[in-house]
Amino acid sequence: MGLLDKKYHDSNIIIVPLENALNWARKSSLWYEQFGLACCAIEMMATAASHYDFDRFGILPRSSPRQADVMIVAGTVTMKMASRIERLYEQMSEPRYVISMGSCSNSGGPYWEHGYHVLKGVDKVIPVDVYVPGCPPRPEALLEGFLKLQERITNETVVESKPDGK
C-alpha cells in the first residue's frame, strides 16, 4: 500500500459525500476505447506503453465500445469514417466522454483547406469533452487531456436532489 501502509486502524471510518466518492471512483478508472485512426494513434500507443504508462492513472484500453467510458478520437476522421464514429459513440454506455486528440479531429488540421474527403472536426458528428491540440500531440499532452477530463468528472453532479428539498 506504499504511503498508506499501517497508517490507519481497522476501526477508522471515512466520511465523505456520496457524490465525491462516486466521482472519485469514476475518474480513477477511465477505460478508453482502443481505437486508432491515424498518426495520433501511434502517440496514443506510445502513451499506453512502457515509457509513459497510462495504467498508473487507471486508464486501460478496451476493445469494445460497450465496455469503454471514454473514446479517444486519435487521428483524421474522413467522410467515410464519420458515420462509423457516430455508430461507435452510440454503442458506448452512459456516462461517456470523448477526447478529441490532435489537430485533425479538432478541426481538420493540415487537411483543412484541400481535404475533400476529410471531416473538418469530429465535433460535427459527436459531442467532444476535451480537445488536445498538436499534430500529433505529445504523450504528455494526451495525459494532460485526461487530467482535464478527470477535473471535469470531479465537478459533475451525479446525485439527484429530492423534489421536496428534504
Binding site: G108, L119, V125
Partner: peptide, 14 residues
C-alpha cells in the same frame, strides 16, 4: 473537380 457540399448529411466544408 468541385468538392461536393455534403455527404450523408454531413458537411464536407469547414
Amino acid at each position: 473537380y468541385r468538392q461536393q457540399e455534403t455527404y450523408l448529411g454531413v458537411t464536407t466544408g469547414a
